[in-house]
Amino acid sequence: MTDPILATHNLQKSFGALKATDNVSIDLYPGEIHAIIGPNGAGKSTLIAQICGELKPNAGRIELLGQDVTHTNTLTRAKAGIGRTFQISALAMEDTVLQNVLLGAVGAVGSPWRFLFPVLADKLLYSKANDALKRVGLQGDAARRTSDLSHGQRRQLEVAVALTLEPKAFVMDEPMAGLGAEGSKTLTSFLDGLRDEAPILLVEHDMDAVFALADRISVLVYGQIIETGTVDQIRSSKAVREAYLGSDT
């Protein structure tokens, strides 16, 4: 078996008395989409924040491409190959859509120390940015101000910025939230193809999307992974049904 691209080992994080991450071990293998589901407040975003280096775990280990990155910061992990999207869009709202993806391209190329050369005249940066916009279907909105975008379009832009980084692993926090049925469908089929470029750790509420996409699903409840398995295993798991999916499934 190949090695995982990304893995956590016995990760723990408490906020006061609340165990937001309770001994979580998950991994992400090449070519797969590993979905993390769980009710609101289960600790999904907290887990993602630790994986991306925004929050320090109290205990446990995080590995990226076999390297221990537990004590590195967001910056190092981004450079090492984590492509992250935020649940609450973190975009430069006063900038244009194109500028936001260009930022990704500048980061990917690692060249922010040019002061007198117009960023738009750099063909490499521009084509990287433009490609990413095309892939998520935002090329027609390139010149718009980001704050004028709809909620769903901002989600698409989040994905586009991550694409410019050509990461080793995508880590996405609820990319479908607020997209609407049509948007979810489009993004679902897009992510379906994306897993061949880099595996995706996908936190998602939209169950149709998760069941359509996931190779494996982990169920997080009160900070603990109560089960990991294929779509069918999770669907038929009694524990999961009781804890999370409810009686209607």
């Binding site: 910061n73 967001t74 981004a78 992250r84 935020f86 900038d95 500048v106 910025v161």
Partner: peptide
């Protein structure tokens, strides 16, 4: 505007 974003692009 979004320092978090800048970090996540490295």
């Amino acid at each position: 505007q979004a320092p978090q974003r800048v970090q996540t692009v490295g």
